[in-house]
Amino acid sequence: TCPLCKTELNIGSKDPPNFNTCTECKNQVCNLCGFNPTPHLTEIQEWLCLNCQTQRA
């Protein structure tokens, strides 16, 4: 489950994953609780959960 919103993560499912791993804290959170803060920078593959995003802001 997502630590932030308690959504079930579909780990091991044949569906596309509905979660990602935060590059900062390494927690697995669902796609609604994390995002790529710099989608225009292709050389930085970063994906932050809302916790890390808030701490950085």
Rank of each mutant, 00 (worst) to 15 (best):
T1K: 03
T1C: 12
T1N: 10
C2N: 06
C2M: 00
C2F: 00
P3R: 06
P3E: 04
P3I: 09
P3G: 07
P3Y: 07
L4H: 12
L4V: 04
C5Q: 01
C5S: 01
C5R: 00
C5H: 07
C5D: 02
K6M: 04
K6P: 14
K6A: 08
K6S: 13
T7Y: 04
T7S: 08
T7R: 09
T7C: 02
T7V: 05
E8T: 08
E8G: 09
L9R: 06
L9V: 09
L9M: 14
L9C: 06
N10D: 05
N10R: 04
N10M: 12
N10Q: 11
N10C: 04
N10L: 05
I11W: 04
I11G: 05
G12C: 13
G12P: 12
G12D: 15
G12T: 12
S13F: 07
S13A: 03
S13L: 05
S13K: 15
K14Y: 02
K14W: 02
K14I: 02
D15M: 09
D15H: 05
P16N: 05
P16Q: 08
P16Y: 09
P16L: 08
P17F: 05
P17G: 08
P17Q: 08
P17C: 02
P17W: 06
P17S: 06
P17N: 06
P17Y: 02
P17I: 03
N18K: 10
N18H: 08
F19A: 08
F19Y: 12
F19L: 07
F19V: 05
F19C: 04
F19S: 04
N20W: 06
N20L: 10
N20H: 08
T21W: 14
T21A: 11
T21V: 13
T21P: 06
C22N: 01
T23E: 10
T23D: 12
T23F: 15
T23G: 14
T23S: 11
T23M: 13
T23Y: 12
T23N: 04
E24D: 11
E24G: 11
E24A: 09
E24R: 11
C25G: 01
K26S: 14
K26T: 15
K26H: 05
K26F: 10
N27C: 15
N27S: 14
N27Y: 03
N27H: 10
N27A: 14
Q28H: 05
Q28M: 15
Q28I: 02
Q28A: 13
V29Q: 05
V29A: 09
V29L: 04
C30K: 02
C30L: 00
C30A: 02
C30R: 02
C30V: 02
N31H: 14
N31I: 07
N31T: 06
N31A: 14
N31K: 14
L32H: 13
L32A: 14
L32I: 08
L32D: 10
L32F: 11
C33Y: 00
C33Q: 02
C33F: 00
G34Y: 07
G34D: 09
G34W: 05
G34N: 00
G34K: 01
G34T: 00
G34I: 00
F35L: 15
F35S: 15
F35D: 15
N36W: 09
N36L: 10
N36V: 13
N36D: 08
N36T: 04
N36Y: 05
P37F: 04
P37H: 03
P37S: 11
P37K: 09
P37M: 08
P39I: 11
P39V: 13
H40S: 15
H40N: 15
L41C: 11
L41K: 15
T42W: 06
E43M: 06
E43S: 06
E43L: 03
I44L: 13
I44C: 12
I44S: 12
Q45G: 12
Q45P: 07
E46P: 06
W47E: 12
W47V: 13
W47G: 13
W47I: 09
L48K: 05
L48N: 09
L48G: 03
L48E: 07
L48S: 09
L48I: 08
C49Y: 00
C49V: 01
C49N: 02
L50Y: 05
L50H: 14
L50G: 13
L50T: 15
L50I: 06
N51K: 09
N51P: 04
N51Q: 08
N51S: 05
N51F: 04
N51Y: 05
N51H: 07
C52I: 00
C52Y: 01
C52P: 00
Q53P: 15
Q53A: 05
Q53M: 03
T54K: 15
T54V: 06
T54H: 09
Q55H: 04
